[in-house]
Amino acid sequence: MRDIMGMMGKVKEMQAKMERMQEEIAALTVDGTSGGGLVTVTLDGKGNMKRLKIDPSLFKEDDAEILEDLIVAAHADAKGKAEAITAEKTRELTAGLPIPPGMKLPF
Protein backbone atom coordinates (compact mmCIF):
# COMPACT_ATOMS: atom_id res chain seq x y z
CA MET A 1 0.00 0.00 0.00
CA ARG A 2 2.90 2.34 0.69
CA ASP A 3 4.12 1.90 -2.87
CA ILE A 4 0.76 3.04 -4.23
CA MET A 5 0.72 6.10 -1.98
CA GLY A 6 4.30 6.92 -2.99
CA MET A 7 3.38 6.52 -6.64
CA MET A 8 0.36 8.80 -6.25
CA GLY A 9 2.59 11.43 -4.67
CA LYS A 10 4.99 11.16 -7.61
CA VAL A 11 2.10 11.49 -10.07
CA LYS A 12 0.86 14.68 -8.37
CA GLU A 13 4.41 16.05 -8.34
CA MET A 14 4.78 15.25 -12.04
CA GLN A 15 1.46 16.94 -12.83
CA ALA A 16 2.58 20.10 -11.05
CA LYS A 17 5.89 20.09 -12.91
CA MET A 18 4.10 19.52 -16.22
CA GLU A 19 1.77 22.45 -15.57
CA ARG A 20 4.72 24.72 -14.76
CA MET A 21 6.52 23.57 -17.90
CA GLN A 22 3.46 24.24 -20.05
CA GLU A 23 3.21 27.75 -18.58
CA GLU A 24 6.91 28.35 -19.31
CA ILE A 25 6.51 27.13 -22.88
CA ALA A 26 3.42 29.30 -23.44
CA ALA A 27 5.39 32.34 -22.23
CA LEU A 28 8.28 31.71 -24.65
CA THR A 29 9.00 33.97 -27.57
CA VAL A 30 11.27 32.68 -30.32
CA ASP A 31 12.68 34.57 -33.29
CA GLY A 32 13.33 32.90 -36.62
CA THR A 33 15.23 34.63 -39.39
CA SER A 34 15.86 34.14 -43.09
CA GLY A 35 17.64 35.96 -45.86
CA GLY A 36 20.55 36.84 -43.60
CA GLY A 37 18.26 38.66 -41.17
CA LEU A 38 16.15 40.45 -43.78
CA VAL A 39 13.02 38.72 -42.49
CA THR A 40 12.36 37.98 -38.82
CA VAL A 41 9.34 36.12 -37.47
CA THR A 42 8.52 36.00 -33.74
CA LEU A 43 6.41 33.12 -32.43
CA ASP A 44 5.04 32.40 -29.00
CA GLY A 45 5.53 29.02 -27.35
CA LYS A 46 2.35 27.69 -28.93
CA GLY A 47 3.55 28.49 -32.44
CA ASN A 48 1.38 31.57 -32.98
CA MET A 49 3.03 34.35 -34.97
CA LYS A 50 3.33 37.46 -32.82
CA ARG A 51 5.49 39.70 -34.98
CA LEU A 52 6.83 39.92 -38.52
CA LYS A 53 9.71 42.23 -39.40
CA ILE A 54 10.69 42.78 -43.04
CA ASP A 55 13.69 44.83 -44.13
CA PRO A 56 12.46 47.69 -46.36
CA SER A 57 14.93 46.73 -49.09
CA LEU A 58 12.67 43.77 -49.90
CA PHE A 59 9.67 45.92 -50.85
CA LYS A 60 10.04 45.74 -54.60
CA GLU A 61 7.37 44.43 -56.91
CA ASP A 62 9.79 42.05 -58.61
CA ASP A 63 10.77 40.47 -55.28
CA ALA A 64 7.31 39.49 -54.01
CA GLU A 65 7.92 35.77 -54.50
CA ILE A 66 11.31 35.96 -52.79
CA LEU A 67 9.74 37.83 -49.87
CA GLU A 68 7.01 35.21 -49.53
CA ASP A 69 9.63 32.44 -49.47
CA LEU A 70 11.70 34.30 -46.87
CA ILE A 71 8.66 34.73 -44.61
CA VAL A 72 7.88 31.02 -44.81
CA ALA A 73 11.55 30.17 -44.09
CA ALA A 74 11.72 32.52 -41.10
CA HIS A 75 8.52 31.03 -39.71
CA ALA A 76 9.89 27.51 -40.11
CA ASP A 77 13.12 28.57 -38.38
CA ALA A 78 11.25 30.02 -35.39
CA LYS A 79 8.93 27.02 -35.17
CA GLY A 80 11.88 24.62 -35.22
CA LYS A 81 13.56 26.55 -32.40
CA ALA A 82 10.36 26.56 -30.32
CA GLU A 83 9.91 22.81 -30.84
CA ALA A 84 13.53 22.18 -29.83
CA ILE A 85 13.09 24.16 -26.61
CA THR A 86 9.85 22.30 -25.84
CA ALA A 87 11.52 18.93 -26.47
CA GLU A 88 14.46 19.82 -24.22
CA LYS A 89 12.18 20.97 -21.39
CA THR A 90 10.16 17.77 -21.74
CA ARG A 91 13.32 15.62 -21.65
CA GLU A 92 14.45 17.42 -18.49
CA LEU A 93 11.06 16.91 -16.87
CA THR A 94 10.72 13.26 -17.76
CA ALA A 95 14.34 12.22 -17.14
CA GLY A 96 14.38 8.74 -15.65
CA LEU A 97 10.75 7.93 -16.39
CA PRO A 98 9.96 4.85 -18.47
CA ILE A 99 8.25 6.72 -21.32
CA PRO A 100 8.19 4.98 -24.73
CA PRO A 101 10.46 6.53 -27.39
CA GLY A 102 8.69 8.94 -29.71
CA MET A 103 5.89 9.71 -27.28
CA LYS A 104 5.26 13.44 -27.46
CA LEU A 105 4.66 15.41 -24.29
CA PRO A 106 2.92 17.59 -23.25
CA PHE A 107 -0.18 15.88 -24.56
Rank of each mutant, 00 (worst) to 15 (best):
D3M: 14
D3I: 10
G6C: 05
G9I: 03
G9D: 12
E13T: 05
E13D: 12
K17A: 15
Q22N: 11
E23P: 07
I25D: 02
A27Y: 00
A27R: 04
D31R: 10
G36A: 12
G36W: 04
L38F: 11
L38A: 15
V39S: 07
T40Q: 14
T42M: 10
L43T: 02
G45Q: 01
K46C: 03
N48R: 12
R51M: 08
L52G: 13
L52P: 10
K53I: 11
P56R: 10
F59R: 10
F59N: 08
K60L: 11
K60D: 11
D62Q: 14
D63N: 13
E65L: 15
E68L: 12
E68P: 03
A73R: 05
A73V: 11
A73E: 06
A74H: 09
H75F: 14
A76R: 15
A78S: 12
A78K: 00
T86C: 04
T86L: 01
E88Q: 14
E92F: 05
T94Q: 00
A95Q: 14
G96L: 07
G96C: 10
P100D: 13
P101Q: 06
P101H: 02
G102N: 04
G102T: 09
M103G: 00
M103K: 02
P106F: 03
F107T: 12
